[in-house]
Nucleic acid binder design. Structure first.
Lengths: 133, 133
DNA sequence: ATTTTTTTTGCAACTAAGTTGCACTTATTC
DNA sequence: GAATAAGTGCAACTTAGTTGCAAAAAAAAT
Protein backbone atom coordinates (compact mmCIF):
# COMPACT_ATOMS: atom_id res chain seq x y z
CA UNK A 1 0.00 0.00 0.00
CA UNK A 2 1.40 3.36 -1.12
CA UNK A 3 0.24 5.16 2.03
CA UNK A 4 2.55 3.29 4.36
CA UNK A 5 5.52 3.70 2.07
CA UNK A 6 4.90 7.43 1.97
CA UNK A 7 4.78 7.66 5.73
CA UNK A 8 8.28 6.22 5.88
CA UNK A 9 9.60 8.39 3.06
CA UNK A 10 8.10 11.54 4.57
CA UNK A 11 10.01 10.79 7.71
CA UNK A 12 13.25 10.21 5.79
CA UNK A 13 13.32 6.55 6.66
CA UNK A 14 14.38 3.68 4.45
CA UNK A 15 11.50 1.64 3.17
CA UNK A 16 11.84 -1.96 4.30
CA UNK A 17 9.40 -4.79 4.62
CA UNK A 18 9.58 -4.98 8.44
CA UNK A 19 8.94 -1.23 8.74
CA UNK A 20 5.95 -1.40 6.43
CA UNK A 21 4.51 -4.24 8.48
CA UNK A 22 4.98 -2.27 11.68
CA UNK A 23 3.37 0.87 10.28
CA UNK A 24 0.45 -1.22 9.12
CA UNK A 25 -0.14 -2.79 12.53
CA UNK A 26 0.29 0.55 14.27
CA UNK A 27 -2.32 2.08 11.98
CA UNK A 28 -4.77 -0.71 12.66
CA UNK A 29 -4.95 0.15 16.34
CA UNK A 30 -6.52 3.25 17.87
CA UNK A 31 -5.19 2.49 21.36
CA UNK A 32 -1.55 2.54 22.42
CA UNK A 33 0.14 -0.84 21.90
CA UNK A 34 3.09 -2.55 23.56
CA UNK A 35 6.27 -3.87 21.94
CA UNK A 36 5.09 -7.33 22.94
CA UNK A 37 1.86 -6.88 20.98
CA UNK A 38 3.78 -5.77 17.90
CA UNK A 39 6.20 -8.70 18.14
CA UNK A 40 3.29 -11.10 18.25
CA UNK A 41 1.27 -9.40 15.50
CA UNK A 42 4.11 -8.78 13.06
CA UNK A 43 6.04 -12.00 13.69
CA UNK A 44 9.21 -9.94 13.45
CA UNK A 45 12.19 -10.52 15.66
CA UNK A 46 11.88 -8.66 18.94
CA UNK A 47 15.16 -6.86 18.34
CA UNK A 48 13.81 -5.48 15.09
CA UNK A 49 10.61 -4.36 16.78
CA UNK A 50 12.40 -2.61 19.64
CA UNK A 51 14.88 -0.94 17.33
CA UNK A 52 12.22 0.15 14.88
CA UNK A 53 10.13 1.59 17.71
CA UNK A 54 13.08 3.68 18.85
CA UNK A 55 13.73 4.83 15.31
CA UNK A 56 10.10 5.81 14.84
CA UNK A 57 10.06 7.71 18.14
CA UNK A 58 13.27 9.55 17.21
CA UNK A 59 11.77 10.54 13.87
CA UNK A 60 8.62 11.80 15.55
CA UNK A 61 6.41 9.17 13.96
CA UNK A 62 5.47 7.57 17.27
CA UNK A 63 4.83 8.71 20.82
CA UNK A 64 6.12 6.63 23.72
CA UNK A 65 3.79 6.39 26.69
CA UNK A 66 4.35 5.10 30.20
CA UNK A 67 1.12 4.05 31.87
CA UNK A 68 2.74 2.29 34.83
CA UNK A 69 2.30 -1.13 33.37
CA UNK A 70 5.94 -2.09 33.60
CA UNK A 71 6.35 -1.66 29.87
CA UNK A 72 6.13 1.19 27.42
CA UNK A 73 3.29 1.72 24.98
CA UNK A 74 3.37 3.38 21.56
CA UNK A 75 0.87 5.31 19.49
CA UNK A 76 1.10 7.16 16.21
CA UNK A 77 2.02 10.81 16.62
CA UNK A 78 -0.28 12.01 13.86
CA UNK A 79 -3.17 12.17 16.31
CA UNK A 80 -3.91 15.35 18.27
CA UNK A 81 -2.05 15.53 21.55
CA UNK A 82 -3.93 14.06 24.44
CA UNK A 83 -3.55 12.21 27.72
CA UNK A 84 -4.82 8.94 29.08
CA UNK A 85 -6.86 7.59 31.91
CA UNK A 86 -6.24 3.98 32.81
CA UNK A 87 -8.58 1.69 34.70
CA UNK A 88 -6.58 0.19 37.56
CA UNK A 89 -8.91 -2.78 37.58
CA UNK A 90 -9.36 -3.94 33.97
CA UNK A 91 -6.64 -1.90 32.29
CA UNK A 92 -8.84 -0.20 29.72
CA UNK A 93 -7.42 3.05 28.39
CA UNK A 94 -9.42 6.11 27.38
CA UNK A 95 -8.31 9.44 25.97
CA UNK A 96 -8.42 12.83 27.62
CA UNK A 97 -8.06 15.95 25.53
CA UNK A 98 -4.86 17.96 25.69
CA UNK A 99 -4.28 19.28 29.14
CA UNK A 100 -3.94 22.72 30.60
CA UNK A 101 -0.24 22.17 30.58
CA UNK A 102 0.64 25.58 29.19
CA UNK A 103 -0.69 27.30 32.29
CA UNK A 104 1.26 24.94 34.52
CA UNK A 105 4.59 25.40 32.87
CA UNK A 106 5.39 28.75 34.43
CA UNK A 107 4.51 27.41 37.85
CA UNK A 108 6.84 24.47 37.34
CA UNK A 109 9.69 26.76 36.35
CA UNK A 110 9.04 29.08 39.29
CA UNK A 111 8.86 26.26 41.85
CA UNK A 112 11.87 24.34 40.63
CA UNK A 113 14.31 26.91 39.37
CA UNK A 114 14.69 24.91 36.16
CA UNK A 115 15.61 26.67 32.92
CA UNK A 116 13.31 24.81 30.58
CA UNK A 117 10.50 22.30 30.59
CA UNK A 118 10.65 20.17 27.46
CA UNK A 119 8.22 17.38 28.23
CA UNK A 120 5.75 16.15 30.77
CA UNK A 121 3.87 13.04 31.81
CA UNK A 122 0.29 13.44 32.87
CA UNK A 123 -1.69 10.29 33.13
CA UNK A 124 -4.68 9.38 35.23
CA UNK A 125 -5.71 6.21 36.99
CA UNK A 126 -9.15 5.21 38.15
CA UNK A 127 -12.10 2.94 37.53
CA UNK A 128 -14.07 2.75 34.32
CA UNK A 129 -17.85 2.49 34.59
CA UNK A 130 -17.84 -1.31 34.17
CA UNK A 131 -15.37 -1.89 36.96
CA UNK A 132 -17.02 0.60 39.29
CA UNK A 133 -20.43 -1.04 39.03
CA UNK B 1 15.78 5.30 68.10
CA UNK B 2 12.21 5.50 69.39
CA UNK B 3 11.02 7.66 66.48
CA UNK B 4 11.48 5.00 63.83
CA UNK B 5 9.85 2.33 65.96
CA UNK B 6 6.83 4.58 66.40
CA UNK B 7 6.51 5.17 62.67
CA UNK B 8 6.17 1.43 62.15
CA UNK B 9 3.75 0.98 65.07
CA UNK B 10 1.59 3.88 63.93
CA UNK B 11 1.22 2.16 60.60
CA UNK B 12 0.32 -1.16 62.24
CA UNK B 13 3.52 -2.79 61.08
CA UNK B 14 5.66 -5.25 62.98
CA UNK B 15 8.85 -3.75 64.29
CA UNK B 16 11.83 -5.59 62.84
CA UNK B 17 15.44 -4.71 62.44
CA UNK B 18 15.35 -4.58 58.62
CA UNK B 19 12.34 -2.27 58.67
CA UNK B 20 13.96 0.07 61.17
CA UNK B 21 17.05 0.24 58.99
CA UNK B 22 14.95 1.03 55.95
CA UNK B 23 12.96 3.76 57.70
CA UNK B 24 16.23 5.27 58.89
CA UNK B 25 17.72 5.42 55.41
CA UNK B 26 14.49 6.73 53.92
CA UNK B 27 14.44 9.51 56.51
CA UNK B 28 18.00 10.47 55.76
CA UNK B 29 17.17 11.42 52.20
CA UNK B 30 15.06 14.35 51.05
CA UNK B 31 14.94 13.19 47.43
CA UNK B 32 13.20 10.08 46.13
CA UNK B 33 15.45 7.01 46.25
CA UNK B 34 15.58 3.78 44.26
CA UNK B 35 15.37 0.21 45.53
CA UNK B 36 18.94 -0.21 44.35
CA UNK B 37 20.09 2.66 46.57
CA UNK B 38 18.34 1.13 49.56
CA UNK B 39 19.82 -2.31 48.93
CA UNK B 40 23.28 -0.82 48.82
CA UNK B 41 22.83 1.48 51.84
CA UNK B 42 21.07 -1.00 54.10
CA UNK B 43 23.02 -4.13 53.06
CA UNK B 44 19.75 -6.04 53.25
CA UNK B 45 18.80 -8.72 50.78
CA UNK B 46 17.16 -7.25 47.70
CA UNK B 47 14.07 -9.40 48.21
CA UNK B 48 13.60 -7.90 51.66
CA UNK B 49 14.02 -4.40 50.31
CA UNK B 50 11.52 -4.89 47.47
CA UNK B 51 8.98 -6.55 49.74
CA UNK B 52 9.35 -3.97 52.46
CA UNK B 53 8.92 -1.17 49.92
CA UNK B 54 5.66 -2.72 48.75
CA UNK B 55 4.48 -3.13 52.31
CA UNK B 56 5.30 0.49 53.10
CA UNK B 57 3.49 1.72 50.00
CA UNK B 58 0.41 -0.37 50.85
CA UNK B 59 0.37 1.06 54.35
CA UNK B 60 0.62 4.58 53.02
CA UNK B 61 4.05 5.18 54.53
CA UNK B 62 5.75 5.61 51.18
CA UNK B 63 4.88 7.05 47.78
CA UNK B 64 6.02 5.26 44.66
CA UNK B 65 7.17 7.52 41.83
CA UNK B 66 7.90 6.76 38.21
CA UNK B 67 10.24 9.33 36.68
CA UNK B 68 10.93 7.38 33.50
CA UNK B 69 14.26 6.12 34.69
CA UNK B 70 13.47 2.48 34.13
CA UNK B 71 13.05 1.93 37.84
CA UNK B 72 10.70 3.17 40.52
CA UNK B 73 11.62 5.68 43.18
CA UNK B 74 10.27 6.03 46.70
CA UNK B 75 9.76 8.90 49.09
CA UNK B 76 8.16 9.23 52.50
CA UNK B 77 4.47 10.08 52.32
CA UNK B 78 4.58 12.38 55.34
CA UNK B 79 5.64 15.25 53.13
CA UNK B 80 3.04 17.53 51.52
CA UNK B 81 1.86 16.29 48.16
CA UNK B 82 3.89 17.58 45.27
CA UNK B 83 5.20 16.71 41.84
CA UNK B 84 8.63 16.53 40.29
CA UNK B 85 10.60 18.01 37.48
CA UNK B 86 13.51 15.94 36.23
CA UNK B 87 16.50 17.20 34.29
CA UNK B 88 16.80 15.02 31.20
CA UNK B 89 20.49 15.80 31.07
CA UNK B 90 21.92 15.34 34.57
CA UNK B 91 18.96 13.66 36.26
CA UNK B 92 18.56 16.13 39.10
CA UNK B 93 15.09 16.17 40.63
CA UNK B 94 13.30 19.21 42.01
CA UNK B 95 9.90 19.57 43.63
CA UNK B 96 6.84 21.33 42.28
CA UNK B 97 3.99 22.20 44.62
CA UNK B 98 0.76 20.24 44.44
CA UNK B 99 -0.87 20.68 41.10
CA UNK B 100 -4.16 22.02 39.94
CA UNK B 101 -5.32 18.47 39.72
CA UNK B 102 -8.68 19.08 41.36
CA UNK B 103 -9.79 21.28 38.50
CA UNK B 104 -8.67 18.71 35.96
CA UNK B 105 -10.48 15.79 37.48
CA UNK B 106 -13.93 16.71 36.20
CA UNK B 107 -12.52 17.20 32.73
CA UNK B 108 -10.93 13.78 32.84
CA UNK B 109 -14.19 12.14 33.90
CA UNK B 110 -16.15 13.99 31.22
CA UNK B 111 -13.70 13.15 28.41
CA UNK B 112 -13.25 9.51 29.31
CA UNK B 113 -16.57 8.36 30.70
CA UNK B 114 -14.77 6.84 33.66
CA UNK B 115 -16.55 6.53 37.00
CA UNK B 116 -13.71 7.54 39.27
CA UNK B 117 -10.24 8.95 39.17
CA UNK B 118 -8.21 7.59 42.07
CA UNK B 119 -4.68 8.59 41.18
CA UNK B 120 -2.62 10.48 38.67
CA UNK B 121 0.92 10.88 37.47
CA UNK B 122 2.13 14.32 36.63
CA UNK B 123 5.80 14.73 36.19
CA UNK B 124 7.85 17.18 34.21
CA UNK B 125 11.05 16.86 32.24
CA UNK B 126 13.42 19.59 31.19
CA UNK B 127 16.78 21.17 31.80
CA UNK B 128 18.01 22.54 35.10
CA UNK B 129 19.91 25.84 35.03
CA UNK B 130 23.33 24.10 35.13
CA UNK B 131 22.61 21.90 32.15
CA UNK B 132 20.99 24.68 30.13
CA UNK B 133 24.00 26.99 30.47
C1' DA C 1 22.03 -2.80 -14.72
C1' DT C 2 25.63 -4.13 -11.87
C1' DT C 3 28.70 -3.07 -8.27
C1' DT C 4 29.66 -0.59 -4.06
C1' DT C 5 28.39 1.38 0.09
C1' DT C 6 25.42 1.93 3.80
C1' DT C 7 21.73 0.59 6.61
C1' DT C 8 18.76 -2.86 8.49
C1' DT C 9 17.73 -7.38 10.15
C1' DG C 10 17.81 -11.49 13.08
C1' DC C 11 20.05 -14.73 15.90
C1' DA C 12 22.28 -15.67 20.33
C1' DA C 13 23.66 -14.24 24.36
C1' DC C 14 23.23 -10.78 27.89
C1' DT C 15 21.51 -7.23 31.42
C1' DA C 16 18.69 -4.87 34.92
C1' DA C 17 14.75 -4.63 37.71
C1' DG C 18 11.92 -7.11 40.06
C1' DT C 19 9.40 -11.71 41.59
C1' DT C 20 8.46 -16.53 43.44
C1' DG C 21 9.07 -20.81 46.25
C1' DC C 22 10.56 -22.39 50.31
C1' DA C 23 13.08 -23.27 54.54
C1' DC C 24 14.55 -20.57 58.46
C1' DT C 25 14.28 -16.95 61.77
C1' DT C 26 12.19 -13.41 64.39
C1' DA C 27 8.09 -10.82 66.41
C1' DT C 28 3.93 -10.80 68.77
C1' DT C 29 0.12 -13.43 71.19
C1' DC C 30 -1.43 -16.55 74.58
C1' DG D 1 8.17 -19.26 77.79
C1' DA D 2 5.63 -21.97 74.13
C1' DA D 3 2.69 -21.40 70.25
C1' DT D 4 1.52 -18.93 66.38
C1' DA D 5 1.91 -15.77 62.88
C1' DA D 6 4.67 -12.83 60.08
C1' DG D 7 9.13 -11.47 58.10
C1' DT D 8 13.67 -12.70 56.07
C1' DG D 9 17.12 -14.44 52.86
C1' DC D 10 18.89 -17.57 49.57
C1' DA D 11 18.57 -19.51 44.90
C1' DA D 12 16.43 -19.64 40.95
C1' DC D 13 13.34 -17.38 37.81
C1' DT D 14 10.79 -13.85 34.88
C1' DT D 15 10.02 -9.91 31.99
C1' DA D 16 11.33 -6.07 29.29
C1' DG D 17 14.68 -4.57 26.86
C1' DT D 18 19.83 -4.35 24.96
C1' DT D 19 24.43 -5.52 22.62
C1' DG D 20 27.66 -7.78 19.31
C1' DC D 21 28.04 -9.48 15.07
C1' DA D 22 27.41 -11.71 10.60
C1' DA D 23 24.08 -12.01 6.84
C1' DA D 24 20.67 -9.64 4.00
C1' DA D 25 18.54 -5.86 1.82
C1' DA D 26 18.23 -0.71 0.36
C1' DA D 27 19.96 3.11 -1.74
C1' DA D 28 23.87 5.32 -4.11
C1' DA D 29 27.53 5.21 -7.44
C1' DT D 30 29.26 3.59 -11.53
Amino acid sequence: MKKHTDILLNNKLRVTEPRLVMVKVLHSQSKPVSAEYLIQKTQLDKVTVYRTLHTFVEHGLLREIDLRQGKLLYELADRPEHHHVVCTDCGVIEDVDACVFESLQSKVLRDSGFAKVTDHAMEFFGLCKQCDA
